[in-house]
Design a protein around this nucleic acid. Structure first.
Length: 501
RNA sequence: GCCGCAUUCGUCUAGAGGCCCAGGACACAGCCCUCUCAAGGCUGAGAUCAUCGGUUCGAAUCCGAUAUGCGGUACCA
């Protein structure tokens, strides 16, 4: 068997897309599982839309997810690595020109002088007549005189590849099985070089896959219909035809192909929202594939071990953010404390920058909080919600929230006041959760209050919210003085309000 | 229009002729745990396996038709 060489070929015309990422993942898993080579090639021939920012976003995102490639740009400090380069199509232009010239010389391609407007009216006419849209082949056999006349009109020709008529192109797709196409339904001769002499996708992909000795083309289902064109091009180029595997599409909730119009598609956005790479990769791997066992939470290395291309599904998969969040929580809970702190730090800094918290907690403070925080984080970005109230000078509890539903304001003031005294009695030296809790339970029992009501009043007074980590751990984290101060403030505010009404 | 691909709980999926009047997970509901929120545990609801016909002793699994959906049909990738 020949060497396994696969590639991901993103186009830097937008930020790293979820679909591209999933395709990259499956290529990566396939290559690593078989000990093959994983290649990154940048398809940047659409100069109008490609930018260096998008290119960086794509490389950064792929690195972030841990899918290291063996050949291509952006490996370590090198501009690129690998002996099949260059890996940017704009740097391979000479190769496309050479291949195009060859096809032209062999009469497998020809110059076409039809203008876009002419082609457009032709298509409209076909559409109106319920005919399949296809290029008529008007320029397929021009005489020297006709060519000269077009040139005299200063028309700039495109290069068209001859699609042979009446042939059946068949291949065995690794995920879909046997697929056949009639070459008459391919839309006629294919433009492979623009009138400005830049090459087009179908052409560059075949030239490059051949030149880079790609053994398996693993890509989205949206390319299935293009495959016969590619096969014809491989043949014309005298190259071996690789194996194909067309992956099911990732879908919007309405089951159309996932788009940024209807879904969040940029990987960088998920990263910014506190999803971690372990979860992301884990989630994506299970879109269209599964191990066949009941395992759900698997690392990249475990996925590599289990991956089988032939086990990939053939029907599209709706992206389910709820499930991603669940997996993210699973992975966050599996992180070591040191690791979690490192990953949380930028999100806390972001909270500071956004003014949602007033200062940056120290590593020691975060570390002390971790046991109660870790299981409460669906995403890293949720950290502000969970412990942010500790890192602001004051909270301003809503008076309505302060009063438990079974109580009135007067009872609440009395209860907070009594609690404040018990808490003060604990003293700064004994300031531990186990020391604070018993006297407050005793207080509730003495007064015949529901423990939950008392604790809720204290919780809101101290944190300003009704959902927090365990109360006494929270108080310890806040500190003796600050806890008492917040209680005082709450009592004051509530008393003033009670009087006023 | 033409060509192609697909169709199992709301969603991701298991299932490759009898183990399936269909299993797991997310989401949802209830209960337990519990100071709230989570996490965790248990239980539940949820799929006439798109429809029709065929092959077979037997079909979610094989074949055909139909329907529906999606993808492609560019001097985009």
């Amino acid at each position: 068997m020949t060497d396994v060489r696969v590639r991901i070929a993103p186009s830097p015309t937008g930020p790293l897309h979820l679909g591209t990422t999933r395709t990259a993942l499956f290529n990566y898993l396939f290559a690593r599982h078989l000990g093959g080579t994983f290649i990154l090639r940048l398809e940047d021939t659409d100069q109008a839309r490609s930018t260096i920012e998008y290119e960086n976003d794509i490389l950064t995102g792929l690195h972030w997810l841990g899918m290291e490639w063996d050949e291509g740009p952006g490996i370590g400090d090198e501009p690129e690595r690998g002996s099949y380069g260059p890996y940017r199509q704009m740097q391979r232009l000479a190769r496309y020109t050479e291949a195009a010239d060859r096809l032209l010389a062999e009469d497998k391609a020809y110059h076409c002088y039809c203008s876009p407007a002419e082609l457009d009216t032709e298509r409209k006419r076909q559409d109106a007549g319920h005919e399949p849209a296809r290029y008529s082949g008007r320029c397929a056999h021009l005489t020297a005189a006709q060519t000269a006349s077009f040139e005299a009109e200063d028309r700039r020709p495109v290069l068209r590849f001859r699609i042979p008529p009446d042939r059946t192109i068949a291949f065995d797709d690794i995920v879909r099985g046997h697929v056949e196409f009639d070459t008459n339904a391919l839309g006629g001769d294919l433009v492979i070089v623009r009138s400005d002499l830049t090459p087009l996708y179908h052409f560059t992909v075949a030239v490059d896959d051949a030149a880079m000795a790609i053994s398996h083309v693993i890509r989205g289902e949206d390319h299935l219909s293009n495959t016969p064109k590619h096969i014809l091009l491989f043949e014309a180029l005298g190259a071996a035809v690789p194996q194909f595997a067309h992956l099911p599409l990732i879908l919007n909730p309405d089951r159309t192909k996932m788009s940024k119009r209807k879904s969040q598609t940029a990987v960088a956005d998920y990263r910014a929202q506190g999803f971690i790479p372990e979860a992301f990769v884990n989630y994506l791997a299970f879109l269209g594939w599964s191990t066949g066992t009941e395992e759900e939470v698997l690392s990249l290395a475990e996925l590599v071990e289990r991956f089988e291309l032939s086990a990939v599904n053939s029907s599209g998969a709706v992206f389910d953010r709820d499930r991603l969040e669940w997996l993210n929580g699973q992975w966050i809970r599996r992180l070591s404390p040191e690791d979690l702190i490192d990953r949380l730090r930028p999100f806390l800094e972001n909270e500071v920058a956004a003014g949602r918290i007033e200062w940056m907690p120290s590593d020691e403070e975060i570390s002390a909080l971790l046991p109660v925080v870790q299981e409460r984080l669906p995403t890293l970005a949720a950290v502000g919600e969970v412990i942010g109230f500790l890192f602001v000078k004051d909270v301003e509890p809503d008076a309505a929230l302060l009063v438990p539903k079974r109580w009135d304001a007067a009872t609440t003031v009395a209860a907070l006041d009594a609690a404040r005294r018990r808490i003060a009695d604990v003293g700064e030296v004994s300031w531990e959760a186990d020391e604070i809790e018993p006297p407050l339970r005793a207080l509730a029992e003495e007064r015949g209050w529901k423990v939950g009501d008392l604790f809720m009043a204290i919780r809101v007074a101290i944190t300003g919210r009704t959902a927090t980590p365990p109360l006494f751990d929270t108080m310890v984290a806040l500190g003796y003085e600050r806890s008492l101060a917040r209680l005082d403030r709450a009592i004051e505010r509530l008393a003033a309000r009670a009087e006023a009404s």
